[in-house]
Amino acid sequence: GKMTGIVKWFNADKGFGFITPDDGSKDVFVHFSAIQNDGYKSSDEGQKVSFTIESGAKGPAAGNVTSL
């Protein structure tokens, strides 16, 4: 299901970062391709987002990331 969290950091040059879930669980990796914004796929530190957890090649990753 959908979770909410805060972007801990995001490196636009490398195209990835981490989200800290609101439920206190482990930080989740986020790749720019998962960000659902139109246009520039980046996110700012401290941005509140909703997301799903997908199982990626390197473990859990955020999917369907949407700014709230």
Results as ranks from 00 to 15, higher is better:
Gly1Asp: 10
Gly1Arg: 13
Gly1Pro: 13
Gly1Asn: 12
Lys2Met: 11
Lys2Cys: 13
Lys2Ile: 12
Met3Gln: 09
Met3Leu: 11
Met3Ser: 06
Met3Cys: 10
Met3Gly: 03
Met3Pro: 03
Met3Glu: 03
Thr4Gln: 06
Thr4Cys: 12
Thr4Tyr: 08
Thr4Glu: 03
Thr4Arg: 06
Thr4His: 07
Thr4Ser: 07
Gly5Arg: 01
Gly5Ala: 02
Gly5His: 02
Gly5Asn: 01
Gly5Lys: 01
Gly5Phe: 07
Gly5Met: 05
Ile6Ala: 05
Ile6Ser: 07
Ile6Glu: 04
Ile6Asn: 04
Ile6Val: 12
Val7Ile: 15
Val7Ser: 00
Val7Tyr: 05
Val7Met: 12
Val7Lys: 00
Lys8Tyr: 05
Lys8Asn: 03
Lys8Ile: 07
Lys8Ser: 06
Trp9Val: 02
Trp9Pro: 01
Trp9Met: 03
Trp9Lys: 00
Trp9Arg: 01
Phe10Val: 03
Phe10Met: 03
Phe10Lys: 00
Phe10Ser: 00
Phe10Asn: 00
Asn11Lys: 05
Asn11Arg: 08
Asn11Gln: 04
Asn11Trp: 09
Asn11Met: 03
Ala12Gly: 07
Ala12Ser: 11
Ala12Glu: 08
Ala12Phe: 12
Ala12His: 14
Ala12Ile: 12
Ala12Trp: 15
Asp13Trp: 12
Asp13Tyr: 13
Asp13Thr: 13
Asp13Lys: 14
Lys14Cys: 10
Lys14Phe: 09
Lys14Ile: 09
Lys14Gly: 05
Lys14His: 07
Lys14Pro: 02
Gly15Tyr: 04
Gly15Thr: 06
Gly15Ile: 06
Gly15Asn: 03
Gly15His: 04
Phe16Cys: 05
Phe16Met: 03
Phe16Gln: 00
Phe16Pro: 00
Phe16Val: 03
Phe16Tyr: 14
Phe16Glu: 02
Gly17Val: 05
Gly17Pro: 01
Gly17Gln: 00
Gly17Asp: 01
Gly17Ala: 05
Gly17Lys: 00
Phe18Trp: 10
Phe18Thr: 00
Phe18Met: 07
Phe18Val: 05
Phe18Ile: 04
Phe18Gln: 01
Ile19Phe: 02
Ile19Gln: 00
Ile19Trp: 03
Ile19Tyr: 01
Thr20Gln: 10
Thr20Asn: 03
Thr20Gly: 03
Thr20Tyr: 05
Thr20Arg: 13
Thr20Ile: 12
Thr20Trp: 05
Thr20Ser: 10
Thr20Lys: 13
Pro21Phe: 05
Pro21Trp: 05
Pro21Arg: 03
Asp22Arg: 02
Asp22Glu: 05
Asp22Trp: 05
Asp22Gln: 04
Asp22His: 05
Asp22Ser: 08
Asp23Glu: 04
Asp23Ile: 05
Gly24Pro: 02
Gly24Phe: 04
Gly24Tyr: 04
Ser25Asn: 06
Ser25His: 06
Ser25Pro: 03
Lys26Ala: 14
Lys26Leu: 08
Lys26Tyr: 07
Lys26Glu: 12
Lys26Gln: 13
Lys26Cys: 11
Lys26His: 09
Lys26Ile: 09
Lys26Arg: 12
Val28Tyr: 04
Val28Ser: 00
Val28Glu: 02
Val28Trp: 03
Phe29Met: 02
Phe29Cys: 06
Phe29Ala: 00
Phe29Ser: 00
Phe29Gln: 01
Val30Gln: 01
Val30Arg: 00
Val30Pro: 00
Val30Ile: 09
His31Met: 05
His31Ile: 06
His31Val: 05
Phe32Val: 12
Phe32Leu: 10
Phe32Gly: 06
Phe32Cys: 12
Phe32Asp: 02
Phe32His: 10
Ser33Trp: 08
Ser33Phe: 06
Ser33Ile: 05
Ser33Ala: 07
Ser33Leu: 08
Ala34Ile: 04
Ala34Arg: 06
Ala34Asp: 07
Ala34Met: 06
Ala34Thr: 06
Ile35His: 03
Ile35Thr: 04
Ile35Gln: 03
Ile35Ala: 03
Ile35Leu: 13
Ile35Cys: 12
Gln36Gly: 08
Gln36Asn: 11
Asn37Arg: 10
Asn37Phe: 14
Asn37Ile: 13
Asn37Trp: 14
Asn37Val: 12
Asn37His: 12
Asp38Cys: 14
Asp38Thr: 12
Asp38Glu: 12
Asp38Tyr: 14
Gly39Glu: 09
Gly39Cys: 13
Gly39Leu: 12
Gly39Lys: 10
Gly39Met: 11
Tyr40Ala: 09
Tyr40Cys: 13
Lys41Glu: 08
Lys41Ala: 10
Lys41Trp: 15
Lys41Gln: 10
Lys41His: 12
Ser42Met: 13
Ser42Asn: 10
Ser43Tyr: 15
Ser43Leu: 15
Ser43Val: 15
Ser43Lys: 10
Ser43Met: 15
Asp44Arg: 15
Asp44Tyr: 15
Asp44Cys: 15
Asp44Lys: 15
Asp44Pro: 15
Glu45Pro: 15
Glu45Phe: 14
Glu45Lys: 15
Gly46Leu: 11
Gly46Asn: 09
Gly46Glu: 05
Gly46Val: 09
Gly46His: 10
Gly46Lys: 08
Gly46Tyr: 09
Gly46Thr: 07
Gly46Cys: 13
Gln47Ile: 11
Gln47Thr: 13
Gln47Cys: 14
Gln47Tyr: 11
Gln47Leu: 11
Lys48Val: 08
Lys48Cys: 12
Lys48Glu: 06
Lys48Phe: 09
Lys48His: 14
Lys48Arg: 14
Lys48Gly: 06
Val49Asn: 02
Val49Tyr: 04
Val49Leu: 03
Val49His: 01
Ser50Asn: 04
Ser50Ile: 09
Ser50Glu: 09
Ser50Pro: 01
Phe51Asn: 00
Phe51Cys: 03
Phe51Ser: 00
Phe51Trp: 02
Phe51Val: 01
Thr52Tyr: 08
Thr52His: 07
Thr52Gln: 06
Thr52Pro: 01
Thr52Trp: 08
Thr52Asn: 07
Ile53His: 03
Ile53Ser: 03
Ile53Trp: 08
Ile53Leu: 11
Glu54Lys: 10
Glu54Ala: 08
Glu54Ser: 10
Glu54Tyr: 14
Ser55Cys: 14
Ser55Tyr: 15
Ser55Ala: 13
Ser55Asn: 13
Ser55Val: 14
Gly56Tyr: 09
Gly56Cys: 10
Gly56Pro: 03
Gly56Glu: 07
Gly56Thr: 15
Ala57Thr: 12
Ala57Pro: 14
Ala57Val: 13
Ala57Met: 12
Ala57His: 11
Ala57Gly: 09
Ala57Ser: 11
Ala57Asp: 10
Lys58Ala: 09
Lys58Phe: 14
Lys58Thr: 08
Lys58Met: 10
Lys58Trp: 15
Lys58Tyr: 14
Gly59Phe: 07
Gly59Thr: 03
Pro60Cys: 09
Pro60Arg: 14
Pro60Leu: 12
Pro60His: 07
Ala61Ser: 12
Ala61Trp: 15
Ala61Tyr: 15
Ala61Pro: 02
Ala61Arg: 15
Ala61His: 14
Ala62Cys: 05
Ala62Met: 02
Ala62Ser: 02
Gly63Lys: 15
Gly63Ala: 15
Gly63Asp: 06
Gly63Leu: 13
Gly63Pro: 02
Asn64Asp: 06
Asn64Pro: 02
Val65Ile: 05
Val65Ser: 03
Val65Lys: 02
Thr66Lys: 11
Ser67Met: 15
Ser67Cys: 13
Ser67Val: 15
Ser67Ile: 15
Ser67Gln: 11
Ser67Tyr: 15
Leu68Met: 10
Leu68Arg: 06
Leu68Lys: 04
Leu68Asp: 05
Leu68Glu: 07
